[in-house]
């Protein structure tokens, strides 16, 4: 809890400098990827990806299906480790610390880099236990009232508290799709991560639920570094400050979202934006 409160304070101090979205890279860089490659067996899925991801901003990865955007996202919290035969090369640094270094514990990494998945996947437990799970396993709450506070504030930040405050003990799987996804976001926030990765978080949701999540992402960026993979260019345009375009495992172009959408440098980016590939 103290951790979270502290973060909120620092954020409000930094808010002023976050106002100009086009100059995001002037800001502190949270994640640095250099020459990242991924092989699945003998097949190469990513070719030399190098990108900087700024603090407290939304970075969107766009590109046609199978372009490697999700693969790269999963490199950032080492979820690719769980896939048999996946090999990751290059370096990814979180605040200058190599996340693939043997000294780094992947459990700690995933506590610092939370993830929200394509399909809402709440645990088959109560709403309360869903949110409390992370703080419990990482030992972030000293006692029950601490934990209650984390759960309530996480649900609030995810914009779900008012809807579920009377049924915290009911199963999270009984919520609607959009509510489930916000529950997953609350669950990720509860650990107090620095970065939140979102893998097409709205692709299983209807337009209204999507709008709610997008609004939420916009609010969350004040406190968190967010990386979102999306197949919807409109969504990228709406929620992100920086956009990176992937194609066939290559990072084709990256820059401020406005520039990518209004004035793409690369021909492939232009074609994709215009709907000619995808």
């Amino acid at each position: 809890m103290d951790m979270l409160a502290g973060k909120i304070k620092t954020t409000s101090q930094n808010l002023d400098s976050a106002m100009n979205p086009t100059d995001m890279l002037d800001r502190q860089i949270r994640l640095t990827a250099r020459d990242v490659t991924v092989h699945y067996g003998t097949k190469q899925a990513l070719h030399g990806i190098s990108i900087d991801i700024p603090d407290r901003a939304v970075t969107a990865f766009i590109g046609p299906s199978g372009c490697g955007k999700s693969t790269f996202l999963r490199c950032i919290n080492r979820m690719n480790d769980t896939i048999e035969g996946a090999k990751v090369g290059g370096t990814i640094k979180l605040d200058g610390e190599d996340i693939y270094s043997p000294d780094l514990d992947v459990v700690e990494l995933r506590a610092r880099i939370g993830m929200v998945f394509q399909k809402p996947n709440p645990f088959p437990k109560s709403i309360y236990d869903n949110v409390a799970y992370g703080p419990r396993i990482h030992g972030l709450a000293r006692n029950k009232s601490d934990l209650d506070e984390i759960v309530v504030s996480s649900l609030r930040k995810a914009g779900l508290f008012e809807e579920v405050k009377d049924r915290l003990q009911e199963p999270g799987t009984g919520l609607s799709g959009g509510q489930q996804q916000r529950l997953c976001i609350a669950r990720a926030i509860a650990v107090g991560p620095e970065v939140i990765l979102m893998d097409e978080p709205c692709s299983a949701l209807d337009p209204i639920a999507t709008a709610v999540i997008e609004e939420l992402i916009d609010e969350l960026r004040e406190n968190y570094t967010i990386v979102i993979v999306t197949h919807s260019m409109q969504q990228a345009a709406r929620v992100s400050q920086r956009t990176a375009f992937f194609h066939l495992g290559h990072l084709i172009e990256q820059g401020p979202t406005e520039d990518i959408f209004t004035n793409p440098v690369n021909k492939q980016t232009q074609d994709y934006i215009m709907g000619r590939i995808g």
């Binding site: 459990v107 995933r110 709440p122 396993i137």
Partner: peptide, 20 residues
């Protein structure tokens, strides 16, 4: 999805198996 949810939260493999 359940396994990924657990691992994504930073659960260890043992925690994933026994908790979920």
């Amino acid at each position: 999805a359940l396994r990924q949810a657990a691992l994504g939260m930073g659960a260890s493999k043992t925690q994933m198996v026994f908790h979920h």
